[in-house]
Write a protein that binds this DNA or RNA. Structure first.
Lengths: 221, 221
DNA sequence: CTCTTATTGTATCGAATCTGAAAGATCGAG
DNA sequence: CTCGATCTTTCAGATTCGATACAATAAGAG
């Protein structure tokens, strides 16, 4: 499953370098050269991680992240900064960034941080999501319980549920879901997804997953 | 109750970064830039955790920890190291460090380790774990007894059991288990693990180890 | 409104994959 | 060589996957 990364960086040369490097490592990279572009991408795309330069045109990295956090988005973020002042680092962490890296940096160092965050992005400690109806999904344990009783879910169902929980109230296109559930080279028919949607609905309630005809599905709380 | 952390790190910039970050998370941080300073702090202050770089002036991290351990101090320690060799990691563990982290690392990753170690050290220092059915596992002796009678376990089985006992009710992925049982360069087939699971089940009871298909196993109390 | 058509939901079942169990191969120590 | 620990192989049974067929539903045309 490819991780999708937003790179907000106005230095075109640096941006290209990072993009090239990360793509070589198998990530999907969206580049934005200013805060407005970043906003657009954040709304349109599913993102797993953000690399944010602070000093960029229109909306700076701090404000951009603050805005996202205010909307409840928990996408992990790393600040790229050439600023050295204590305040900036503190401000960054206060805003809920997960790490930061100082310019100039070795690409390898960046990779370490990216990988480390992605690995842990899915909640490190007892992340449990309440689904109502006595249903609890434990992300770390990959287990679903109802009133304390375990409900057996198969791997594909778990993947699907995880995806939905990461993007509640968001329209997920068929393509997006397929990318999340299957590898590049796998090409199951469209019917396969329908099967899993049906199974999930049977477990968590039909009304939780809306159908958007011709486009995809949406999980509602 | 604030936890007190000693940070031994001679790279001033990194040290500042870590200090800032941990203080933001509510810890009290004492910084030392060489082994002698660290000694001083260790004598004067009450410490809950130590973060030790290995390569620092005067007294290196290894020697510093060894000294403390020789004096009977059990303060948990994490090595910060840029060294990659297996030996150094082993040496660290032999000296009684509890974890290590390689530079460069994401601050969040450091935080995870700090928190988990602090939590653990507050937890019980029990020497024996009751497994029911008259079964007792002695952590220090690494031996299993049933109704006082010793049950012979092979090293791999003991490692596996220890791992499970340190992570009860936790989903352990194949990868995790493999890393715990085998060295970096060893690559036994998946069948090997299945063999040990089977043996352990025969000893401690089938129901204690759950299978999570495609992912791993989980030990339940 | 009714019919048509495209899309989505449901049920089923064989194929592929995974796990557990057993047996035997390998390897090193003594 | 023998023994014991470790690991591999094999195979059967269980589970999961996903194709397929068909039913239900939504949307649009007339």
């Amino acid at each position: 499953m490819t991780s999708h990364i937003l790179l907000l960086e106005d230095d075109i040369q640096l941006s290209d370098t990072i993009k090239q490097f990360l793509e070589l490592k198998g990530y999907k990279v969206y580049t934005a050269y200013d805060g407005l572009e970043a906003e657009e991408i954040a709304y349109e795309k599913h993102l797993d991680l953000m690399l944010l330069d602070v000093k960029v045109p229109h909306i700076n990295g701090f404000d951009f992240l603050k805005q996202l956090r205010d909307e409840g988005k928990e996408i992990p973020a790393i600040f790229i900064t050439s600023l050295n002042s204590v305040e900036d680092v503190e401000k960054g962490f206060a805003l809920g960034c997960d790490d930061y890296i100082r310019k100039p940096f070795a690409l390898k160092e960046l990779l370490v941080r990216v990988e480390s965050l992605l690995k842990r992005s899915f909640g490190t400690h007892e992340e449990r999501i309440v689904l109502g109806d006595g249903l609890l999904f434990d992300i770390k344990e990959l287990s679903l319980t109802q009133d304390g009783k375990k409900i057996g879910l198969k791997t594909k169902e778990i993947k699907l549920l995880s995806l939905f929980l990461q993007h509640t109230d968001t329209l997920l296109e068929y393509k997006t879901i397929h990318e999340a559930l299957w590898e590049y080279d796998e090409k199951p028919s469209a019917g396969a997804l329908r099967t899993y949607i049906k199974r999930l609905r049977a477990v968590i309630g039909k009304e939780k997953i809306e159908t958007v005809k011709n486009i995809g599905y949406r999980f509602v709380k």
